[in-house]
């Protein structure tokens, strides 16, 4: 969970429109890879490893999209669903994607009921995730 200790790498290519994205993920390696790849695709990326950290950021930073892992703890958590609800309530214009390695029709239905824009399985090809993010934020 080093995401809060690493400096921002979100440097967009010169001249590109930089959408601000929040990654909510507790696994350092995944968070690092997402930040790195999405930064190279021109997004301005913040990362948070805890629900409260992510909620605090959403309260004060205008994000174009939030990508949240379903589970931020090693137990049977569903913080990702809480995050979707939080974003819908506090930043209704922000697009949301839920990532999960524990997908089920019930989880997807619950996420949909909370207003998620997309539910994707983990692992997810980074290129496809970036394409979806681009489509979501530029549809605004």
């Amino acid at each position: 969970m080093l995401s809060h200790l690493t400096p921002c790498l979100g440097e967009a290519p010169e001249g590109a429109l930089s959408h601000k994205i929040l990654i909510v993920e507790d696994e350092d390696s995944i968070s690092f890879a997402l930040r790195r790849f999405l930064s190279m695709r021109g997004f301005d990326v913040d990362c948070a490893s805890e629900l409260e950290e992510a909620q605090a950021l959403v309260a004060h930073v205008p994000y174009a999209a939030v990508v949240a892992d379903l589970r931020l703890t090693c137990v049977h958590g569903a913080e990702g669903l809480e995050m979707i609800s939080h974003v819908r309530k506090h930043a209704p214009g922000t697009r949301t994607i839920l990532l999960t390695a524990y997908g089920s029709p019930e989880i997807e239905a619950e996420a949909r009921s909370r207003g998620v824009d997309a539910v994707l399985p983990k692992p997810q090809p980074l290129g496809e995730l970036a394409d979806l993010l681009t489509a979501l934020v530029e549809a605004e």
């Binding site: 809060h4 200790l5 690493t6 400096p7 913040d46 948070a48 950290e53 605090a56 950021l57 309260a59 004060h60 930073v61």
Partner: peptide, 10 residues
């Protein structure tokens, strides 16, 4: 270097 550098987020 943390998300909590800004007092509002902190």
């Amino acid at each position: 270097g943390t998300n909590a550098r800004e007092a509002s987020v902190l």
